[in-house]
Design a protein around this nucleic acid. Structure first.
Lengths: 223, 223
DNA sequence: TGATTTTAATAGTATTACTATTATATTTGT
DNA sequence: ACAAATATAATAGTAATACTATTAAAATCA
């Protein structure tokens, strides 16, 4: 199996966690813990206890827990972009390519054996619940300047290019893509917790969600 | 001028802040402060200093700052629903009604003299930056059970009924409405802070945003 | 081997979110 | 009108959180 890893923006961390065992423990366990207890309840102290290290040691890898979250979520979007490339590379028709992207956004995420020490299913739930918090902060301009939203931005840029291929006269490709990417996550969350805000069942939101996104995208593009 | 106020869910507060001067001070100043410093930096202690009261006194009105935020945001959606009723009451054509809703979502919010002690412009910026945080929490099920999301849910339900009038065969009215309501906010935020994720200028996002939402909605409904 | 650098742990601090208790108004009944 | 009852607010805390300065230990290199 190929040993793949993504080159993430260096401002995301103080020390690269992929280079040491402690770093890998931090990533692996924090994904598990944030998924279980949510980002607000998660602290470096609790994490350190779990991996049998100390709070101060975690701080040597990440400036604070917000940066750790940015790191995890950046990894996620790099992974999504990697899979967009993988599954669209053989396709000619831009509409088919866009459908692949929507399918990847809508589908339930499962463990991907290409990347051993990351639990993609848990990470996907983290993105659903915590993504918005990464940019809805007063520090957004500073963080953006450091390139810490590069993962999501790069993903959206790629899909927006496909959107423009599908309909070069459509004026809102970037807005459409970011709206659809966020909506895909929100609707999964709503189906589990606020069902009156959605149209998808708790048990299997994904099939119908894809249909919804397809109508949303191609409805806008074929008008 | 008519003295209007909304009947908000009683679980939102411990004492009704509209009934006392201290309560009104809490509402008025917290809108100002959360708008300026963001919800994370905002604390009851800082608020108490500003209104020349004490932290403990603020706690007699709201269980915690999350409930205060829920209160403010609930007020906002009641206000939006009130204005939907106001501006659609004379209309017959459901498409025209839906367009009014989209216009209200997309337009820049300005001070509404109907409600004297609330700054709607600041409150609208709070909704843009903080709405998602109200439900993206592990307590969402408990808060929902208490009816604390009633404002947003009631607003969406009303628009979804109009959507169904426009096209009774469309299967995703609830999902479409919640997605559009959230997207309207996110795109305004992106236009100010993450321009590559949007298609609207920082200076005047609102006109184009309306066009985007109209294509999104009617594209889905006329397919 | 000894010097240098890297890495991690100890032991803190200021702030935050929240509460138990006490003090002071205000209202109510007679 | 005045004491009793109640409502309201302030004082003074606590436990937990986010973060840091300093020290100790381990690894690496000359």
């Amino acid at each position: 199996m190929a040993l793949l890893s993504f080159k993430l923006n260096e401002h995301l961390f103080l020390r690269d966690p992929q280079h040491t065992q402690l770093g890998k423990n931090i990533i692996g366990k924090s994904v598990e813990m944030i998924d279980e207890m949510g980002f607000e309840q998660f602290t470096f102290k609790k994490l350190a206890e779990q991996i049998e290290s100390t709070e101060a040691s975690v701080y040597r890898y990440f400036e604070n827990k917000h940066h750790l979250l940015l790191y995890l979520i950046s990894w996620y979007w790099h992974w999504m972009e990697f899979r967009v490339d993988l599954y669209t590379s053989g396709l000619k028709d831009p509409s088919e390519k866009l459908k692949v992207c929507l399918r990847l956004l809508a589908e339930e995420k499962k463990y991907d054996p290409t990347f051993e020490f990351v639990n993609e299913a848990a990470l996907s739930r983290i993105v659903i619940s915590e993504l918005d918090k990464t940019f809805l902060t007063k520090e957004v301009d500073q963080l953006n300047k450091e390139g810490l939203y590069g993962g999501f931005k790069s993903f959206c840029k790629k899909i927006a290019a496909i959107v423009t291929e599908v309909n070069p006269t459509y004026a809102f490709a970037n807005a459409l893509v970011s709206s659809i990417a966020l909506a895909a996550n929100h609707q999964v969350f709503f189906s589990a917790h606020l069902p009156s805000l959605t149209s998808f069942s708790k048990e299997n939101p994904n099939e119908k969600l894809y249909e919804f996104l397809e109508i949303l995208a191609f409805g806008s593009l074929n008008i």
